[in-house]
Nucleic acid binder design. Structure first.
Lengths: 196, 196
DNA sequence: TGAGGTTCTTGTTCCAGTTCAATGAACGCA
DNA sequence: TGCGTTCATTGAACTGGAACAAGAACCTCA
């Protein structure tokens, strides 16, 4: 077992539940390592999402895209984040989102067919993933409220504050797509900021 | 046990899992009946949400409200819907939303302190509530995408299609607050619609 | 029965954010 | 080394929706 590769994910789930050593090993044994080159898709709308992916290295993005070409970024995932379409994963329904790599990335996947067994072997995990779901829900509520109630400039400030590292790691037009504005307008917001 | 009062909620959870009669009785015994008069608050931001409420009769609304007076409606709940702040409920954290009655309403509450016992007595319930959480998440994703990518008119059409009964049951300025627009603008959208 | 609060509408003005177009910078890639 | 492509910036014209203001149509309850 490659200790270095798995140190981070153990730290991640241990934040919720402390696992004894043998359960950690059970958990790690269920993981699948996957490398995704830059710009490659990990999930396409219409497919069933059969994984939850922990980003060990690199950067991913999930987004929605409708038939009119309207696009909106749901989430960026860098080191120590999870990316997945949880709704599709849990319900086995076709996904409505896309997930792609923004950089060459290394992921640790939990496949759906291993999940039940894993819950039995490592009881604490159920709590971990329930927490993930709830964090997700809370973040989405905040996001919806901000999108509905705040002007773009405030949303951009909030984004910079919450994800300081992302702003010079992902292309700007994708940040615009996260904020729900055009790339041109984001550019103007930035120009305005420097003046202040 | 008042059969009539509980017929609907049994139907509601049975959609997910069929429960044997004795488990149904366990479930019903854990419920608390609560009447909320029109305009009365059920939950205020800052409080911990210690219930999940099934709307047996009436109509509720949950919404966010920030220090600048910005308001956004998260959800309407009429008969056969659940309303709660699940994030606060599950994590015991102070809520960030308000819930109020739009009509005199009868609710069936599950209190947080009864939940653990209930899961033990009625194993199928865990699945039911997980499904609720996931439906919630999915709905919120759709909503965020629509808010970011669609013009107000399209969002209004989608609202009418998805909740045909609500449009003449809920005051219009609250529908506007659900759509993320001003009441005045919604009024103009409606005027425009009639012309077509 | 009215009087006073809601709720909805309509018009005008104004601004945040879009669209379109042009330019330049940065980045693979042969 | 050069060349096509993607990406960021800037400007001008436009528009969806907000803000403000005023009137009309209501509940509702003393």
């Amino acid at each position: 077992m490659n200790e270095e590769r798995y140190a981070r994910i153990i730290g991640n789930i241990s934040r919720c539940t402390a696992l004894p050593y043998d359960q950690q090993q059970h958990f790690l044994a269920a993981l699948e390592v996957k490398h995704v080159p830059k710009k490659a898709p990990l999930l396409r709308a219409g497919e069933v999402c059969d994984f939850e992916a922990y980003v060990n290295k690199g950067c991913m993005r999930s987004y929605f895209l409708d038939e009119h070409g309207h696009e909106a970024t749901l989430q960026f995932g860098t080191e120590d984040w999870w990316v997945s379409d949880l709704v599709s994963f849990e319900q086995g329904a076709p996904s409505r989102m896309f997930i792609e790599a923004l950089e060459d990335s290394e992921l640790l996947l939990i496949r759906r067919d291993k999940k039940e067994q894993l819950y039995r072997d490592v009881p604490g995990l159920e709590r971990v993933f329930r927490m993930m779901l709830l964090r997700n829900l809370g973040a989405l509520q905040d996001r919806l409220f901000a999108t509905m109630a705040w002007p773009a400039e405030d949303r951009y400030e909030a984004f910079l504050k919450r994800f300081p590292d992302l702003s010079n790691r992902v292309p700007q037009h994708m940040i615009a797509s996260y904020l729900g504005i055009t790339p041109e307008f984001l550019s103007k917001l930035r120009a305005r900021r420097v003046g202040k």
